[in-house]
Deep mutational scan, measured.
Amino acid sequence: SASLEDVKTAVLGLLVILQTKLYTLPASHATRVYEMLVSHIQLHYKHSYTLPIASSIRLQAFDFLLLLRADSLHRLGLPNKDGVVRFSPYCVCDYMEPERGSEKKTSGPLSPPTGPPGPAPAGPAVRLGSVPYSLLFRVLLQCLKQESDWKVLKLVLGRLPESLRYKVLIFTSPCSVDQLCSALCSMLSGPKTLERLRGAPEGF
């Protein structure tokens, strides 16, 4: 439990870093931090981490990651405290083949985003970082199938509809809506759902 406290501190630090690096160059920093966060949550489900502190780590990670939004130009952003989304000039939600690297070039400044813009690109060529939603999407499927803490599952179920409104997140990387529907149906009809959940409301 003591070591998990250190892990929790590290994860919180990564969330803060991602919130900053999403809007700064090099964009590969945001890509790497995002991948680290998603990989860490995957390990929770792989090794069945069920301690309360592990659940709190997942809760905080999902609470942040499910706020990711994308505009029509595929640029990622996060809402501010007033709910207004600021889109990044440097990070996009497109999935890119590994051989192309985590970044790609664009020939010049991008068109203005639909929300308040981030800082304008400084040079004639900007390297865009790929932060594909499919990585998070796979972890969300694991959550629906394996999550043991009701608070975490409730958060994910509550945030998913709003995330799905931003269709560009889903359609720019390999996210299977069929698998999502299947996971939701299995969660509702499967007898093991109630068996594994802690803290579920009576009558769920």
Rank of each mutant, 00 (worst) to 15 (best):
V139Y: 01
F87G: 04
S55P: 05
E162V: 14
Y133F: 11
L140G: 01
T31G: 09
E147M: 00
L14F: 02
T20M: 06
Y133I: 05
I170N: 03
Y23H: 07
L140Q: 02
Y133H: 06
A27R: 04
K104E: 14
I17W: 01
S134E: 05
L128W: 12
T193F: 11
P112G: 14
W150K: 00
F87C: 04
A125I: 13
Y34G: 02
L194E: 10
H40W: 01
A10L: 00
L12D: 15
V131K: 03
R75C: 06
T9M: 06
L197Q: 03
S88N: 02
L160Q: 01
Q19E: 10
I17P: 01
K105C: 14
K151E: 15
T114I: 15
V92I: 10
E162R: 07
S107N: 13
E202R: 09
T106W: 15
R127V: 08
P79G: 05
V16N: 15
M96I: 15
L110A: 15
L153N: 00
S107L: 12
P116L: 14
E202D: 11
S72H: 10
S88A: 05
S173G: 05
L15I: 15
L184N: 00
V7S: 03
K46R: 11
L194V: 15
L180H: 00
L197T: 03
V33E: 00
C181F: 06
V16C: 15
A2Q: 11
D82N: 11
V131Y: 03
V84I: 13
S148C: 11
K8S: 10
I41M: 11
S56N: 11
L18C: 04
K151N: 10
I57E: 00
N80Y: 07
L160F: 05
Y45W: 01
L188G: 02
L4M: 12
P174F: 04
L153S: 01
H47C: 13
H74K: 07
L18V: 03
Q42V: 09
P174A: 08
L76E: 02
G199V: 07
G13R: 02
S173F: 02
L160H: 01
D6Q: 01
P124S: 10
P201N: 15
L169G: 04
L14R: 01
R196M: 06
P52M: 04
T20N: 10
S163Q: 11
V152H: 02
K8H: 09
L135S: 13
R165N: 09
F204W: 07
S107P: 11
D94N: 07
K8N: 09
Q146Y: 09
P161Y: 06
L164A: 02
L155K: 09
P117D: 05
K145D: 15
P89E: 08
R75G: 03
S130M: 09
P117N: 10
F137S: 03
S173V: 05
L184Y: 00
F87H: 06
S3P: 06
K8V: 06
K151H: 15
K145I: 11
P113K: 13
F87I: 06
A27N: 07
S182P: 01
V168C: 09
Q42D: 13
L51H: 07
L135F: 11
S28C: 12
P161I: 09
L18A: 05
E99S: 10
Q142A: 10
E5K: 06
L76F: 03
V152D: 01
A125Y: 15
M36F: 03
V85G: 05
A70S: 07
H74F: 04
H47V: 06
T20S: 13
P113V: 14
V131W: 05
G101E: 13
E147L: 00
Y95I: 13
A30W: 03
H40Y: 02
P112T: 13
C185L: 09
L184K: 00
V92A: 06
P191Q: 15
Q42H: 12
A70F: 03
T50S: 12
L18K: 01
C181Q: 05
T31V: 11
P79A: 10
I17R: 02
R75P: 02
G129L: 05
C143Y: 00
L180R: 01
L184G: 00
S1T: 09
T50Q: 11
S134P: 03
T114A: 15
Q179L: 09
S3A: 11
S48T: 11
C185D: 02
L25W: 15
C91R: 03
P117K: 15
G77V: 02
E99A: 14
C91M: 12
P79R: 08
L153M: 08
L15H: 07
Q19M: 05
S173A: 05
E195D: 15
S111L: 12
C175R: 04
L136C: 08
L157P: 00
E97R: 09
A10H: 00
F137L: 05
Q42S: 14
L141Q: 04
I53L: 09
L141C: 07
Q142M: 10
E195L: 10
F87R: 04
D82K: 09
G129S: 10
P117M: 13
L140N: 01
P112Q: 15
H47S: 11
R58K: 02
L136Q: 04
L68V: 08
P109I: 15
L180F: 06
T31C: 15
E147S: 00
S130D: 04
D178K: 06
G101Y: 14
P112A: 11
R58E: 00
Q42A: 15
T9R: 07
L22V: 07
S102E: 14
F137C: 03
L25S: 14
V92H: 09
V38E: 01
R159G: 05
G190C: 14
R198W: 06
G158Q: 12
R75Q: 07
D178Y: 03
P161A: 14
S39D: 14
V16E: 15
S186M: 11
